[in-house]
């Protein structure tokens, strides 16, 4: 399978990418690791006439300690997240989940920003960023702006990014004293999750992101509210599918997905409450 023909432009800076987007508008797509976009292009489900390759933008690959949060460059690859000592200490949920994306080859190429900007509800890391209440930074012609993760995913493969903006950075608050868990139900190791759950828990304050339970990455708001109101973990987990719009496919009916959400959220809360996974198990 060969993608439809396109013009290829390689840029060496974010500003050059923004300028190229301004020039080509909707006809252009940004290329990072390519592990979401290229499969779509090979199937001709995406046929951009211009590809702007960010692969050489060195300034966007980093994991930095910024005091109360960790800042991650959008082009940081999953393998780097998974093996980052900084993330293992201060955002272990993200380090662990990055090691569950796809398979080793995919993690050597795929990038955090690419996965987030693609906005696929079946991807693991958007749910992780929801759980962690991350902040996203985008750069456009007028400069940088910050976007709360809850405002970022607006529809199926649709985000709050404007056509001339580049996602440049992901900021995750440091977690201290929080339990965490990542639950992923799939048939084969490298498959997309049928349903996944990313969870952090500190007392009655929880952050829970759901994979594949709606047309966009979804927060389990009803479960979070139930916990905050004093519900037990098991009772709160019963609300996990409220507000969801699970789809049906060859792997699962909508009802089975709702069942999985309740079971996996309960397991995630219980593992988190038990102290969560230790950094050594990341």
């Amino acid at each position: 399978m060969i993608p439809a023909a396109f013009d290829y432009q390689r840029v060496d800076s974010v500003d050059a990418a923004v300028a190229a987007l301004g020039e080509h508008g909707d006809e252009a797509k940004l290329l990072a690791g390519g592990h979401s976009l290229l499969p779509l292009m090979k199937l001709r489900l995406a046929t951009p006439s211009v590809l702007i390759d960010l692969g050489r933008v060195q300034e966007l690959s980093y994991v930095q300690d910024r005091g109360d949060h960790i800042a991650i460059g959008a082009l940081t690859r999953h393998h780097v997240l998974h093996t980052s000592g900084l993330l293992a200490t201060d955002a272990p949920l993200l380090a662990h989940a990055a090691g569950q994306v796809g398979d080793p080859q995919v993690r050597h190429r795929g990038t955090l920003g690419g996965s987030i900007a693609h906005g696929d509800p079946a991807s693991d890391l958007p749910a992780v960023l929801l759980a962690l209440r991350a902040t996203l930074v985008a750069r456009g012609p007028e400069g940088n702006r910050s976007i709360a993760v809850d405002d970022f995913f607006v529809g199926f493969l649709e985000t709050a990014l404007r056509p001339d903006e580049v996602l440049t950075e992901v900021q995750v608050p440091k977690v201290t004293g929080q339990g965490w868990s990542f639950q992923k139900m799939n048939r084969r190791a490298q498959d997309w999750a049928i349903v996944g759950v990313a969870c952090v828990l500190s007392g009655t304050a929880a952050g829970i992101g759901l994979v594949n339970m709606a047309s966009r990455p979804l927060r389990a708001s009803a479960t979070e509210a139930a916990l905050a109101g004093g519900a037990s973990l098991a009772d709160a987990a019963q609300a996990a599918a409220e507000g969801a719009e699970a789809s049906a496919d060859l792997n699962a009916s909508a009802e089975f997905r709702e069942h999985l959400a309740r079971v996996l959220v309960r397991r995630a809360l219980e593992e988190s409450a038990a102290g969560g996974r230790s950094a050594a198990r990341v």
């Binding site: 692969g55 080859q105 050597h108």
Partner: peptide
């Protein structure tokens, strides 16, 4: 699967020009 600068990748999902 081939190695790109020493790391395994799936060469069906990389454009040749990306690794110039």
């Amino acid at each position: 699967t081939v190695l790109l600068d020493g790391q395994s990748i799936k060469s069906c999902t990389v454009l040749a020009v990306q690794v110039d």
